[in-house]
């Protein structure tokens, strides 16, 4: 496969969309289970822990992929404040997808719970038993979950903004690559070159 510097690698794209589904599902599972007294509490909790470890492993792989294959550059004409926002939110997402499972694991360890991923698979504790540490980690787990959800909302909104408003090739670079995707999203005028912002001829304002 040829390497197009304007798109994400296949590995990066697969990891992105797989983890997008898993992380969003995880956020809903997390808030759903702590707000339920029904049997839903138990089966969501049973998914939550192994899924968290799966996300942790995927996040480590993804970080390695990212460091090895830098992502395509942002459009050159993107305002500096938006570039900063993109950069900061992406690293915040990386931080949270790594930190959340580790905090969850440490929190259960601090609470003295056996960290059970299934009926018999148990992970070793990664933090000494301490009720104070449990409380801090548990509150952090909940707080970071809210932050992660808000960051996801901003990320999704920004992706759609790039794809629908700016039409600058950022969204296609994560969908399939710039050369082919515009047709998929009903856009037939591919950008001429990296960093060129197309002009919407139908603009009336």
């Amino acid at each position: 496969m040829k390497t197009d510097p304007n798109t994400f690698t296949l590995a990066a794209r697969v990891l992105h969309w797989l983890m997008a589904v898993l992380i969003v599902a995880m956020l809903f599972i997390g808030v759903g289970m702590v707000a339920s007294v029904s049997e839903r509490h138990e089966w969501l909790l049973a998914i939550h822990k192994p899924l968290g470890i799966a996300i942790l492993i995927l996040a480590i792989v993804r970080l390695a992929v990212r460091l090895r294959h830098p992502p395509p550059p942002l459009p050159a004409d993107l305002p500096a404040i938006q570039k900063l926002a993109a950069l900061a939110s992406h690293w915040l997402l990386y931080f949270l997808m790594l930190a959340m499972p580790l905090i969850g694991w440490a929190m259960l360890s601090a609470g003295g719970y056996p960290v059970m991923l299934g009926t018999s698979l148990r992970l070793p504790p990664i933090f000494p038993v301490s009720p104070v540490a449990f409380a801090v980690l548990r509150q952090l787990h909940g707080g970071f979950a809210m932050l992660l959800f808000l960051t996801f909302l901003a990320h999704m909104a920004a992706a759609l903004y790039h794809g629908l408003i700016r039409r600058d090739g950022v969204l296609p670079s994560m969908l399939r690559g710039r050369k082919t995707v515009p047709a998929l999203i009903g856009y037939t005028d591919p950008p001429a070159a990296e960093g060129t912002n197309e002009v919407d001829t139908e603009r009336t304002d």
């Binding site: 449990f134 409380a135 548990r138």
Partner: peptide, 9 residues
């Protein structure tokens, strides 16, 4: 448990 440990902390 979260309430009482948070109070302890």
């Amino acid at each position: 448990y979260l309430r009482r440990t948070s109070e302890e902390a």
